[in-house]
């Protein structure tokens, strides 16, 4: 009995996971696919030709999205890693205030701070720039990085580092050979999350990028809003591909490393 329930759950899980994605493959090859046809009545490569044409700007947007995602992830690591370590391993006055400061951006709608910062960015000439968009993406990314990594650091003992230090290792080699391998699985997952948060940003990029910085969600949105589902599908699949790749690399960590995902449980 229990086995039957398990298989029902598992099979519906696979169906539900794939149902919104797989039909988009078919849509991306369809020319005419109207109710009530179960399959396109005319097939075509046009949606893919369009996606790969320069007019669609998908290629350009892909590169911008990727560059912004990588810069934002790196910046999040650079500022987020020391902060998470401090929050996890040291007790200091005002710690709970700092924790709150760093967590509030997760709770407060991103659009609120973006609308406010927009005016300042216009004056500083940061709108319409790559840096401006990266900065606004950092608002949600840093908190997620700190949330996950402070949990990782909390589960990570410093004994090994101390031993290495007493054995005469310098700070760089301690980090390189002791700290980094210890936190790497967690770092992978939190970097994946920050990258994906940046990868999926739409309205913040529209507002701060002002049309000069074009990212993938911005080329996709008009086609979904315009119910042009064939083109939406081909662009969607290009948009999804790197995300799935990232998941393949981090899936094991997501599933096994309790401290990492447990980080989300520490808010």
């Amino acid at each position: 009995m229990q086995k039957i329930i398990r298989w029902i759950v598992l099979i519906s899980l696979v169906v539900v996971a794939l149902a919104p994605i797989l039909p988009q493959f078919v849509w991306s090859f369809s020319h005419r696919w109207l109710f009530p046809s179960l399959l396109p009545s005319e097939w075509s490569l046009e949606p893919w030709e369009y996606a790969f044409s320069t007019s669609s700007r998908v290629g350009e947007a892909f590169i911008s999205s990727m560059a912004i995602g990588i810069v934002v992830s790196l910046l999040s690591i650079i500022v987020g890693l020391p902060a998470s370590r401090a929050l996890a391993l040291y007790d200091f006055r005002g710690k709970s205030v700092i924790e709150w400061l760093l967590m509030v951006p997760i709770i407060v709608p991103g659009i609120v701070a973006t609308m406010g910062i927009h005016q300042v960015f216009i004056r500083l000439r940061l709108t319409d720039t790559f840096i401006g968009v990266c900065l606004v993406h950092l608002i949600p990314c840093i908190p997620y990085m700190v949330l996950v990594m402070s949990s990782v650091f909390a589960n990570y003992g410093t004994d090994l580092e101390d031993t290495a230090r007493t054995l005469g290792a310098g700070p760089v080699s301690v980090f390189r050979y002791v700290t980094l391998p210890g936190i790497l699985p967690g770092l992978l997952v939190s970097t994946m999350f920050t990258f994906l948060i940046s990868w999926g940003q739409y309205i913040t990029t529209v507002l701060i990028g002002g049309g000069s910085i074009i990212t993938l969600p911005m080329v996709l949105f008009p086609f979904i809003a315009g119910t042009n589902y064939s083109n939406a599908a081909s662009i969607s699949l290009i948009f999804v591909a790197p995300a799935i790749l990232v998941l393949i690399f981090t899936s094991r960590q997501l599933g096994r490393e309790s401290a990492v995902m447990g980080g989300f449980g520490k808010l």
Binding site: L10, P23, I224, L247
Partner: peptide, 29 residues
């Protein structure tokens, strides 16, 4: 199955929205 379960985590919300419309609209799949 764990991987399939995780599949939707990295997928952008916009893509998910398009997929859901194609599935459940009154003329959807």
């Amino acid at each position: 199955f764990t991987f399939m379960f995780q599949l939707s985590i990295p997928i952008p919300h916009l893509v998910a929205a398009a997929g859901i419309v194609l599935l459940v609209s009154q003329s959807g799949l």
